[in-house]
Amino acid sequence: MPGIDECLLEAMTLPGARGAAIVDWTSGLALGSVGESPNGDHEATAAETAEVARAAAEYRAFAPADATYDDTESGPYDSTGGGTYDGADDDAKGLPVEDLILTTRAGFHLIRFVETTFDSSVFLYLWLDRCTGNLALARRQLRDLSERLVLR
């Protein structure tokens, strides 16, 4: 089972990979990064992608249509105070989102949430070149890496 460094190096073997990171989305800190960064600063990229990941994980708009909510209390998946996503009908251990894909003119930005036995707030981030990257292969590989990743 790969650790952080091994996971990032494996992600960089994907066709078109330009940069990769493992980020804590609650703090916005990179636990590790490799390759290039879209804005030239790995820490700034980690903070910016954490904002996107946090929005996707916390708001109801991204929950499955058949999900059930507890409207009596505020919680970690709804920052507006209108109820929490309880994850009862979801196989993703509470998070309604598996991964995110952002497409720009020059590349693809993939965010894959890492599920752990503890309350994880970590995701894998991969930046792919749009001309040479293989989006389908990258999604499959990130899913595999997220399932095998061991956080030490």
Rank of each mutant, 00 (worst) to 15 (best):
G28D: 10
D71W: 14
W25S: 06
A20F: 02
A57T: 13
S74P: 13
T26A: 14
A88E: 15
S74L: 07
V52M: 07
E147S: 08
R18E: 00
T45F: 04
E48P: 07
P2W: 08
R143F: 04
R112C: 08
I4V: 14
E43Y: 03
E147G: 13
E147R: 13
R140P: 01
R152V: 09
A63H: 15
T84K: 09
W25M: 04
G81I: 03
A17H: 02
T68Q: 01
R143C: 01
F113P: 01
D71Y: 15
L149W: 12
V52K: 00
A55Q: 12
F123G: 06
G87R: 02
A63E: 13
S33L: 03
V23M: 08
A56Q: 05
E51L: 06
G28W: 10
Y69D: 09
P96V: 02
E43T: 00
A106T: 11
D41Q: 04
E51G: 14
A50S: 11
T72A: 15
M12K: 09
L100R: 13
F62W: 13
G40A: 00
Y125S: 10
L9Q: 14
L151A: 01
A106Y: 02
A53Y: 03
G83T: 12
L151E: 05
R140T: 14
P2M: 08
D41W: 13
C7I: 04
G83P: 06
T117V: 11
L31K: 03
D90M: 12
T13N: 14
L124W: 07
M1R: 01
P76G: 07
S27T: 15
V97M: 05
I4D: 10
A30F: 03
D129W: 01
L135Y: 02
L95A: 06
P38T: 00
R143Y: 02
G35Y: 10
S79V: 07
G81A: 12
A136N: 15
D119I: 02
L14V: 03
F62I: 00
Y59C: 11
T103L: 07
R143Q: 13
M12R: 00
P64F: 09
L126T: 01
S120H: 00
P38Q: 05
L124S: 06
L8Y: 11
S121L: 01
D129P: 07
D41A: 08
F113E: 01
F113Y: 12
T45N: 01
L95I: 11
G40R: 03
G28Y: 06
E73K: 13
P2H: 08
D41R: 04
P96K: 10
V150A: 14
G75C: 00
L135N: 07
Y69A: 00
G107Q: 05
G75P: 09
L9S: 14
N39S: 09
A88F: 10
S79Q: 11
T104D: 07
N39T: 08
V150T: 15
F108G: 12
